[in-house]
Write a protein that binds this DNA or RNA. Structure first.
Length: 276
DNA sequence: AGTGCGGCCTGTCCGC
DNA sequence: TGCGGACAGGCCGCAC
């Protein structure tokens, strides 16, 4: 469920409670997540969280380091339905609360995930060498990401541009909602072959991706069904969505009905008038 | 190498 | 009210 803005919102929510604290204990109630929770994660017990950061949709909490040079730490992915919340360690767990990171001082970071597509793993420095992180493309909000990069990477690709921008090896963090939104903002039809789009149009697309992700972060993410931030509150970007889940409703630009089409097994929303 | 698909899970909603 | 099926925001791993 959570895309980049939701993961960033979660990071900003948990970091103040986590950084500089000692992990007292990790309690795993259900280790059957996307991958079984490995015993290595217990290395975190008794150690200080020196930094918290995000890479793509992965949360990385480093231990006992100075700056970002910790020798290892926890890697958490929220999957499609996961969330982290900050609560008192003695609050009774609810359904699907699969693990707790218990901190000194009586608080804990609690992971809830109905669908169990989430992840709790251990990484060894350098984090970027972890198999899940090693092949990832650039961050969409970084300098390395722009229209000419997208254009270069897309040469020769015949698949739909929507699948192309959702490919984490091309650029990370663009999920189904924001892909539809960014393509609408830049006037590009989601089904257009990626290799047959000009550099000029890719510049517009890169700008739209930055714009929509940046605005979604400022709104605390998008809550369509079940995303909650670390305080247990929803995000407010859903009211800003221009095409996503608006099938049959009037395009805000031209008034034509918004269409839905399955591309790459995911629902895609677009305006056939405004997007070519 | 690029592309498409199956699968991992539970919850919700919709039509019969 | 019950039941089956489709669908949901991710992403790996496999076959072609």
């Amino acid at each position: 469920m959570p895309e980049l803005p939701e993961v960033e919102t979660t990071l900003r929510g948990v970091e103040p409670s986590l950084r500089g604290r000692t992990i007292h204990e990790i309690i795993v109630r259900n280790p059957a997540l996307r991958w079984p929770v490995p015993p290595e994660i217990y290395q975190a017990e008794g150690r200080v969280v020196s930094h918290c950061r995000r890479r793509a949709k992965y949360l990385l909490f480093g231990m006992d380091g100075d700056g970002e040079d910790a020798d290892g730490g926890l890697l958490i992915h929220l999957g499609m339905s996961g969330s982290l919340r900050v609560c008192a360690a003695d609050d009774s767990p609810r359904r699907h609360d699969h693990f707790d990171i218990v901190l000194d001082g009586g608080r804990c970071i609690r992971f809830n995930d109905p669908r169990r597509f989430g992840t709790l793993l251990w990484w060894e420095a350098p984090a970027e060498a972890h198999p899940l992180l090693a092949t990832l493309g650039p961050e969409p909000l970084s300098e390395a990401f722009d229209g000419s990069y997208l254009w270069r990477r897309s040469r020769g690709r015949k698949g739909a541009v929507k699948n192309f921008i959702m490919d984490g090896k091309v650029v990370v963090g663009v999920g189904n909602i924001y892909a539809s939104e960014a393509l609408f903002l830049s006037g590009i039809h989601p089904g257009r072959p990626a290799g047959r789009i000009s550099e000029t149009r890719y510049r517009a697309l890169a700008d739209s991706i930055r714009d929509v992700l940046g605005r979604a972060i400022r709104h605390g993410g998008t809550t369509l069904r079940d995303f909650l931030n670390s305080d247990g509150n929803p995000g407010y970007f859903a009211q800003e969505l221009l095409v996503y889940e608006r099938e049959g409703k009037a395009c805000f630009h031209c008034g034509a009905p918004v269409r839905r089409r399955v591309i790459g097994q995911r629902s895609s929303y677009y305006c056939a008038q405004c997007q070519r």
